[in-house]
Design a protein around this nucleic acid. Structure first.
Lengths: 240, 240
DNA sequence: CGATATGTTGAGACCCGTCAATTAGGGTGG
DNA sequence: CCACCCTAATTGACGGGTCTCAACATATCG
């Protein structure tokens, strides 16, 4: 993958933090995830239509779910009434792990496309975790990984400019989408509206458009109606 | 606490998310924390001098620690070489929980004042967690709470201006400091340099100074050499 | 007292937000 | 198939928030 030497990469940001664990935990984590997934596949999957509401903001969550297919957006309203896009949920992502343990009420979850979701009630998950320590361990690992991702996001959101923020978001989606369906490597189509990108990053739509236009002029991305094609993820990783 | 009615509060941001758990988990959490703390008090506390390094960036953490007294700063270097202030550690805060479970290497930890720290090795914590499910549960709860705090931070960092960011940071420190020593309620002295505030929030020192000056002119805070006194936390919570 | 760190202030530039108008894509009903 | 509408994307002019560079004042420490 030839790259000009003067390009510095965002090695810290968007790093895949899954180092091999030398302490023998990985086998326990594998078993824990397996047990949790087994409990979920035992129940019938729920199907949500596009643009339907999966969870209303402020409602108490009673289930832990895994996204099987489709994508959803998690939003929460800010104190001044604006609404921000908290996260994009893709296949493999979990919903409701935080509320399982601390009863917190997070934002709303809305299906962006038709979705299939496997769930398990909080009570059932807690029973599983008490019965099999590996399940509790996997939940702990999951929350820890979320934490590490949050820390990277905070670094970008606090110290990055619009180019860096948008590049980080696109790379994040790029990696997560590629993990699922790694058929054609490039381009990967990120199904995000420029308005959504702005809502996620705290940027206005016109400025998102202008910044994306810079990437487009350099041949790094291609813009279409309702999404962005990533042509050169390596160029996105490079600064300047 | 009389307040002009037109003031809106940051009810979402900086909210204390510890809702009472109705599912009987709180007793397990209490026991889990107790067991972990018992293991820590059994070991002798470590003392660090002010400005000494507790953990170097990139080093592998081998212990889980709790801050007993003093304060520390956790920094990490950004891809462009700048260094950001990731968090301020106060008495009661934990160090090294994330690395326990995923082997991640986070930033450096440096004592800001003389510090006293109680620790337990990763191996010992894992043994405790395997033996007593309540300990694993408490760790899970701890990481979940960290996650919720991170999400609030991301909302402020992405969608807030300098006034909101600084107010949020000061309120965060105010609440955490008050929890420890709630002798004189006001003023609470936040021992943060304006340079540090900027490093934490991604703002430059001159702009931090100008923004803090606004708060000072309104009688909300008082600035002194090396820190800020918070005179009116309620005014900090109010928007505008 | 000197040295260093911190806080303060000003001028100018740049990044980004605001408001507005325009173009284009995609769905829906006739 | 076409007319229509709604959403998404684009672009320009302007203003404000923040950064940059700089100088200076002040506090603390040795």
């Amino acid at each position: 993958m030839p790259m000009p030497a003067e390009w510095q990469e965002y090695s810290y940001w968007n790093s895949d933090q899954s180092e091999p664990l030398e302490n023998g935990l990985s086998e326990h984590l594998r078993l824990g995830k397996l047990a949790l997934m087994a409990g979920m596949t035992a129940t019938t999957a729920r199907i949500f239509a596009a643009r339907s509401t999966i969870r209303k903001e402020g409602d108490l969550e009673t289930m832990v779910s895994e996204v099987v297919s489709g994508s959803a957006s998690c939003r929460c309203t800010l104190p001044d009434g604006r609404t921000m896009l908290a996260s994009i949920l893709l296949p493999g992502d979990m919903i409701g792990v935080s509320s399982l343990i601390d009863g917190s009420r997070s934002g709303s979850v809305e299906a962006r496309t038709q979705m299939s979701v496997r769930s398990l009630s909080h009570a059932e998950v807690l029973r599983l975790a008490a019965e099999k320590p590996d399940v509790a361990l996997w939940l702990l690992w999951h929350q820890t990984r979320e934490n590490n991702r949050s820390n990277e996001w905070m670094a970008v959101l606090s110290h990055g400019n619009a180019r860096e923020k948008i590049a980080f978001l696109l790379l994040d989606l790029y990696r997560r989408l590629q993990r699922e369906a790694h058929v054609g490597d490039v381009p990967v189509r990120v199904p995000l509206t420029q308005r959504e990108i702005g809502e996620r990053l705290g940027l206005t739509l016109p400025h998102v458009c202008r910044t994306v236009a810079l990437f487009r002029e350099r041949g790094i991305v291609e813009v279409f109606y309702g999404g962005i094609d990533i042509l050169s993820p390596h160029a996105l990783m490079a600064r300047t």
